[in-house]
Structure formats: C-alpha cells, structure tokens
C-alpha cells in the first residue's frame, strides 16, 4: 500500500514485517488508515500497536458489524496514538456460526462495556472477557437485535398504519 502519510507508511511497514500473514487488506479511505486483519490474531496485533514502541495507547471505539451479504459478523476497532495523532481502524470478520474473538479488556479497560454491548447487539463472544453479559437489553432477551435479519419494530405499536410506509 502506498501512502502519502509518513506515519501511516511507518505503521504499515511495522505491521507487515511482523504480521504479514494476518493482514488481509489495507486501505486509506478518506485518509483513515484501515486494515483488515485475521480475527484469530487480533489480540497480538493490537497488543503490539498498544505497546510503547507504537504508542497506540487509546482505544477510541469498538463496535460490531453484521455483513449480511456474506453472513459474517465483524468487530471494528478504532485505536488512536494521541502523540502522533494517528488513528487506525482495524477490521475483523468471523463466520456467524462461530463468532469468537479475543477480548481486549486486559489491554484497555474501556473495552469492557463496549465488548458487552457488541455481544448484546451481535452475539459476538469475546474470549477472556471477565463478565460477558447483556448490558443494554434485558437479560431475558433471546436474540441479538442488531443482526440484520431482526426487525426494528417491536410489533406492539397500535397507532400506526404500516401500509403508508411500505411495510
């Protein structure tokens, strides 16, 4: 991958030298360094990036995805090096049948609830998470509502004429 950003080039080189086999795709859409990686190796990659050498000590965001065309689930990480002001987006994919990925809680405490939220929404199992329970929805809920196949509405609404909106 070619980049005009010296920081990005440095990161890409460092990652390529260590984790070449885990990296699937790299890109820079809208100037944001985006790397798709193998979900089995994500913890090592992030641990390396979060080390003092690379300085990505801040987990900005962690969220789930459901790619319904390939029926895969994914987790997207945004990590940030505050001193060089560089952000990286790391994307992973995993089959919906076995949605497992390593937990980041040991690296970033902020990952704790974000992973719980992701589990709550998509049913992604974070291995090594200390307390993987539903967080926003009720414990009794028996599906993962953010997956594309589930409806948004709850169906108890009585004061609406659905035909107006093509449903």
């Amino acid at each position: 991958m070619e980049s005009n950003n010296a920081e990005h080039t440095k990161i890409v080189e460092a990652l390529n030298s260590r984790f070449a086999s885990s990296i699937k795709e790299m890109g820079e859409p809208y100037g944001e360094l985006t790397i798709s990686v193998d979900s089995s190796n994500i913890k090592n990659i992030i641990a390396f990036l979060a080390s003092e050498e690379m300085g990505f000590s801040y987990l900005t965001d962690l969220c789930g995805m459901h790619y319904d065309t390939t029926d895969e689930l994914g987790v997207v990480y945004h990590i940030h090096n505050l001193y060089t002001n560089t952000r990286i987006r790391l994307k992973t994919r995993m089959p919906k049948a076995k949605p497992e990925i390593d937990s980041m809680v040991s690296l970033f405490r902020s990952a704790n609830w974000q992973e719980r939220e992701t589990y709550d929404f998509y049913g992604i199992i974070f291995k090594g998470h200390p307390d993987l329970r539903r967080i926003l929805n009720m414990d009794e809920m028996d599906y993962f509502p953010m997956r594309k196949e589930y409806a948004l509405e709850d169906g108890t609404r009585t004061d609406k004429n659905d035909t107006m909106f093509g449903r």
Binding site: T60, H66, H78, W113
Partner: peptide, 30 residues
C-alpha cells in the same frame, strides 16, 4: 468528550451501519 460517528455506507438509501461513539457510555464504566 469525543463524540464519534462511524458510518458505513453500501450505497443504499440508509446507512449500512452507523455506530455512535458515545463518550458517556465509555466514561461511565469507570
């Protein structure tokens, strides 16, 4: 705090995925 919007578009009329990075949610766990 940092209010982030992670928007994924597949070209359709609605976002394919829109994630809000909500500072309160992340802060409150501490």
């Amino acid at each position: 705090g940092e209010l982030g919007f992670y928007l994924v578009s597949d070209g359709g009329r609605t976002p394919y995925r829109l994630h809000f990075r909500r500072p309160c949610f992340i802060t409150y766990q501490a």
